[in-house]
Design a protein around this nucleic acid. Structure first.
Length: 306
DNA sequence: CGTGTCAAAATGCTTG
DNA sequence: CAAGCATTTTGACACG
């Protein structure tokens, strides 16, 4: 679907001389060892891809993709660009470096050489995929796995800060030879995963709490039944007050044991933190009625467009 | 090979 | 309006 639009927005056909991104523009001749290594690997792959014909689609609309390979129908020009710009057979290279201007700037100012990683070209860029792409007219979305090194590095960064500043995003992209947009998306997905795990943990805890309360409820109901069976009006009167939350204002009930009284009063009486708030001490906003588990949440209504 | 799961990416909406 | 989030789509991969 988005590809349909992308195809509609295909840039003008490449002119012979100057419309393909110049290798130097995208890669940077004098960049860093990492970029050099990637260039070598990508070039090798591009050589393998050389024999294929495929239709490239314009992918994404990242503002940071100033040097993204232009989509071009199979042609010697396109092949040449694949060789030089490190594009993979699917239209863009996940590990395509950010524009050299930005990267050089960032590299100079932020990244000590020791911070650079040896990042292999992303996994999953295989030749079969390219053939498959050919069969489908090139309308496939680029989605490549990040390498373990890249993921680990991002994970480490996420542990330090779960959100990114522009500078952090650029620096990470630079260090990992990813596009800033990829880093951004990774952090978005990572935050979502964290939140999901937390929600699941909360649900588990609520379930346990619910089970405990159900058990307690059954126990209390048994006690009520027993008391009713004993036909003792006065103790029953007191118990009813316990259940109404007035136990602390009443004289001790001779027929309830201490455990029952304390249990009842702790559930029904008032001031102080609710049982739920004690379940989630570190999460003040979380309460029994604000659960937002995906299963429980109502679907958002689209806003009116009229 | 079909299926399920995970994760990257796209899209649209909300919010500050 | 930009950033973040919710949701969805889809490619990669593992497994029976």
């Amino acid at each position: 679907m988005e590809l349909e639009l992308s195809l509609g927005d295909l840039p003008a056909p490449v002119k012979a001389n100057n419309t393909m991104p110049a290798p130097a523009t995208c890669q940077g001749e004098d960049h860093d060892d990492l970029a050099l290594g990637l260039r070598v690997m990508a070039t090798e792959r591009a050589d393998q891809d050389n024999q294929r014909t495929s239709i490239e689609t314009a992918e994404g609309e990242d503002s940071d993709e100033a040097c993204r390979e232009l989509p071009v129908r199979a042609s010697p020009l396109r092949q040449a660009s694949a060789q030089t710009a490190g594009a993979n057979s699917r239209g863009f290279d996940v590990n395509a470096p950010v524009p050299v201007d930005d990267r050089a700037l960032i590299a100079r100012s932020l990244s000590p050489p020791s911070m650079h990683m040896e990042v292999p070209v992303a996994q999953g860029v295989d030749e079969e995929a390219s053939e498959e792409e050919d069969n489908r007219g090139g309308r496939v979305r680029k989605k490549l796995r990040l390498s373990k090194e890249q993921s680990a590095f991002l994970e480490g960064s996420f542990k330090e800060h779960s959100t990114l500043t522009l500078e952090q995003k650029s620096r990470l992209a630079n260090q990992l030879s990813l596009r800033p947009r990829q880093v951004e998306v990774w952090f978005q997905n990572r935050r979502a995963r964290t939140k999901l795990k937390q929600t699941e943990a909360d649900c588990e805890q609520l379930k346990r709490c619910c089970d405990a309360l159900a058990r307690e409820n059954r126990k209390l109901q048994r006690e009520v039944a027993e008391l009713r069976a004993s036909r003792a009006p006065y103790p029953l009167y007191n118990l009813n007050h316990h259940l109404s939350g007035f136990s602390t204002a009443l004289p001790a009930c001779s027929s309830c044991d201490a455990t029952t009284r304390s249990t009842v009063s702790s559930v029904s009486s008032s001031p102080g933190p609710s049982p739920m708030s004690t379940l989630f001490p570190g999460r003040p906003h979380f309460g029994p009625f604000t659960v937002t588990h995906p299963v429980l949440r109502l679907r958002r209504q689209p806003s009116a467009t009229l």
